[in-house]
Amino acid sequence: MRDIKTRYKQSALGYAWAVLNPLIFAATYAVVFGFLLKQRDMVAIPFTLYVYFGLLIWNLFAIGLSTATESLIAHVSLITKVYFPREVFPISAVLSKLVDVGFGLIGLVPLLLFYGVAPSPKILLALCLLPIPLLFTIGLGMLCACANLFYRDVRYVVTMILGLMTFSVPNMYAVKLISDRGEKAFALYMLNPMAVTIEAMRRLTFPQTGDFAELTGYLAIAGAISLVTFFAGYAVFKHYEPRFAEFV
């Protein structure tokens, strides 16, 4: 089973995309939001860097979730022919995106050199937070993959919601924009596990962007939400699993 996780996906395209994709978006965001909308003045590190780092984690969620949603449909021939635990598909879809994060981090090095910004050694601590977005994404992925099997419209809904959700994480704008609106707005904003994780990981890696300690409470909530999502997703997935082969 391990083979599937590591080998199956990701074969056709090179890993360069794991760097190019966030880089191109970061450059665009930097011009539109950083420069034109003046967000860069509110961020303590170069805006491109700010966005690039956030996008690494956001893409893990967004691309992971959309791949997971399609994962059952994409393997219809296997599902109807061979039995093995079907959660392999959504889980491997998300885990394979973890590889992208790894390559994205390698791509971070030249960016850091270019801007002359040194990351804090706490970046290692930041990586320890990855299970939060992973569990959250896998949980949602199992739910959506399952739903997409019964209603093919689900993938369009997922794509749309993901598009809207890009506004719900601090990539296009500085978090200060939210915290300026008051305590309540900030608390509400930080209920989104992805928003907390991105901000927390960035604050650990670049302490100049904000106080990490302020986020620990929200991180605990995000961790709880992720766990609940994961187990709920798994339970629903397993409940419907015996009927997958009939419905594809």
């Binding site: 083979d3 599937i4 080998r7 199956y8 074969s11 296997l78 109807t80 022919k81 061979v82």
Partner: peptide, 26 residues
């Protein structure tokens, strides 16, 4: 199970990769 011709082969993987992949599924 040989329920369909090469069920579970991934079109983009090579023959050798598919041998391993299919083996792990089985």
């Amino acid at each position: 199970p040989l329920l369909e011709v090469g069920a579970g082969f991934h079109p983009d993987l090579t023959g050798t990769q598919n041998i391993f992949f299919n083996g792990s599924i089985l």
